[in-house]
């Protein structure tokens, strides 16, 4: 997995809530048995007209957002299907991080990203960052005022600096486990296999439901 420590790059805005994984990578591209080649198909039905021409009104096609590496969007990004191809597409297009707002507070707080998508991101080194809706609004305003501006992300310090005018300096929360994995870039399976004795011990004591041999 690609480690994530810090990153500086152009911010792109996608002002749509509930972006589902069918939009991120359409089903016709899921037939591949490879892990690469998905970037060119990211947001296919939004990026291209039916006849294959570029849809110039779609945000990511604007010239200021070319080469962008940090995607800023609205809540519930990545909902729907579990297809990890969606993460591969976002990453292979060139994004290193995605920013989305959580909603509400405390027990009723709703995360900015769908569960499976966020989990898949953490297995691939794509950083998901959540801010409050107000903070995300402020990034939208900054970028809309000066499209093409960059942000600097420091995962160790959990900060995002938006290099607009005025500059924004924001702090984000992240699960310590996900942070550690992203910083190290270590192979998850390799790490778990260090626990192979514990797994074997568990299998010995786990009840007989485990047996799945047909009668």
């Amino acid at each position: 997995m690609q480690a994530f420590t810090h990153h500086r790059g152009v911010l792109a805005l996608l002002d749509t809530a509930n972006v589902d994984t069918d939009q991120i990578i359409a089903k016709q591209f899921l037939k591949s048995i490879k892990r690469t080649g998905f970037g060119e198909h990211l947001f296919h039905d939004w990026r291209y007209h039916a006849d294959g021409r570029l849809n110039e009104t779609f945000a990511l096609n604007s010239k200021e957002f070319q080469g962008a590496t940090v995607l800023v969007t609205r809540n519930n990004f990545g909902c729907g299907s579990s297809r990890e191809h969606a993460v591969w597409a976002v990453q292979q297009y060139g994004f290193r991080a995605v920013i989305a707002p959580f909603k509400g507070e405390g027990d009723s707080r709703i995360p900015g990203f769908a569960d499976i998508f966020r989990n898949n991101c953490s297995k691939n080194g794509l950083l998901t960052i959540e801010f409050s809706e107000k903070e995300v609004d402020s990034i939208f305003e900054s970028v809309s005022a000066r499209p093409g501006i960059e942000a600097s992300i420091d995962l160790e310090k959990q900060t995002v600096e938006v290099h607009g005018s005025p500059a924004l300096s924001l702090h984000f929360d992240i699960s310590p486990a996900v942070k550690a994995r992203l910083l190290s870039g270590l192979d998850d399976i390799g790490t778990t296999l260090q626990e192979v004795q514990a797994i074997s011990d568990f299998e010995k004591r786990h009840n007989d439901q485990l047996s799945a041999s047909p009668r």
């Binding site: 990890e84 989990n119 898949n120 297995k123 399976i189 778990t192 192979v196």
Partner: peptide, 19 residues
């Protein structure tokens, strides 16, 4: 449901790391 990286993790270890 899980993604493909987790499919590989379960194939190799029969476990998942979960919160």
């Amino acid at each position: 449901g899980i993604g493909t990286s987790e499919v590989e993790h379960v194939l190799a270890t029969q476990t998942l790391t979960q919160t």
